[in-house]
């Protein structure tokens, strides 16, 4: 991956010419409304978005001013912006912001709209902004169309975490049976083996709080695997770490809640900062436990769940 930074729009037109010369090379583009983001430097923005940007062969970033930044990338993955939007939505928005990430990150196809972009650039930054504003709604519609076509009868969750209709049906069926399960089903999402083992051990010891049944505890170390297991088993409670090997636990928690607002999700993290807590609140998670935690904090989560959803089992 190569990142080229620009402090103005001057090189933009020659880049558009380059795209025009060889249309077979796929390019993508997005505008990020920087005024909705936390106050961060341009370098911090690059660092924070690197996990997504590194999927591209080449990235041009146009840092215009405090209001907007434009990204143009060369990559077979034209839809990088979806992951960029998910990442920005979970980690870079201003604390407490209610704005949707889809408003902050707007994609445009620079190859099909090459002429329009060139004309707008010629007219100035306001015209370019106007072009993005005008296409925002249609871009969302195109994206929905893309989602529908590419994932075949899918719905729910951010772009990276999707579910088929069959998976959703299976999940919903399991949800109906949750109340009558003999054992609690718990999902632990933690990529540090030390912390994973410790938490699983504590959870397996809660049988006295669960009708003397040892809970079934599944442990995984990444959000993709967790999402699959979540759909497959519909766990009663999910304990989710934030800094995971393949993404943020916030992304997973958001997808889980979007699919099932009644799901019980507890964030467990060593990053007990206000910013993280704020994102967790936005995702409507059911608990936020900072490391180091103690046994009582974990047991209390189980007690609350059993007391609320399985009253007949509470001792």
């Amino acid at each position: 991956m190569k990142i080229v930074e620009h402090s103005g729009l001057a090189p933009f037109t020659s880049l558009m010419d380059e795209m025009e010369q060889d249309p077979s090379i796929p390019w993508g583009m997005a505008r990020v409304k920087k005024n909705y983001l936390r106050s961060i430097t341009d370098q911090a923005f690059i660092l924070a978005t690197t996990p997504v940007l590194q999927e591209a062969d080449l990235i041009h970033i146009f840092f215009i001013d405090g209001k907007r930044t434009f990204l143009v990338w060369k990559s077979p993955q034209k839809s990088i912006y979806k992951r960029l939007r998910a990442l920005i939505g979970t980690t870079l928005l201003q604390p407490g912001s209610k704005i949707q990430a889809s408003v902050v990150v707007t994609p445009i196809d620079p190859q099909t709209r090459n002429e329009e972009l060139k004309a707008a650039i010629k007219s100035g930054i306001e015209a370019l902004d106007g072009l993005f504003d005008n296409v925002q709604e249609s871009a969302t519609a195109e994206e929905n169309e893309y989602d529908h076509n590419s994932t075949s009868n899918t719905q729910g969750g951010p772009a990276a975490l999707v579910a088929t209709s069959a998976q959703i049906e299976h999940y919903q069926q399991l949800c109906k049976e949750k109340r009558y399960r003999k054992q609690l089903h718990i999902l632990v999402v933690e990529d540090q083996i030390f912390s994973q083992k410790l938490l699983c051990d504590v959870l397996r010891s809660v049988r006295a709080h669960n009708n003397n049944e040892t809970p079934l505890v599944d442990a995984v170390d990444g959000i993709q695997e967790a999402w699959k297991l979540y759909l497959k088993k519909a766990p009663d409670i999910s304990f989710v770490d934030l800094g995971l090997s393949d993404g943020s636990g916030h992304t997973l928690a958001r997808a889980m809640k979007e699919l099932d607002p009644g799901a019980t999700i507890i964030i467990v993290t060593a990053n007990n900062y206000e910013e993280e807590l704020s994102v967790a609140r936005q995702n409507n998670v059911d608990g936020f436990i900072g490391k180091p935690y103690n046994k009582k904090q974990i047991f209390d989560c189980i007690e609350r769940y059993v007391g609320t959803f399985k009253p007949s089992r509470k001792r």
Partner: peptide
């Protein structure tokens, strides 16, 4: 820097859970 931050975070988590507060 990104790797530094991630690894420091990872070590912080296990240190705090162990009870190694100064290391955390």
């Amino acid at each position: 820097n990104e790797m530094w931050g991630k690894e420091a975070h990872a070590l912080k988590g296990i240190s705090l859970n162990l009870g190694a507060d100064a290391l955390g």
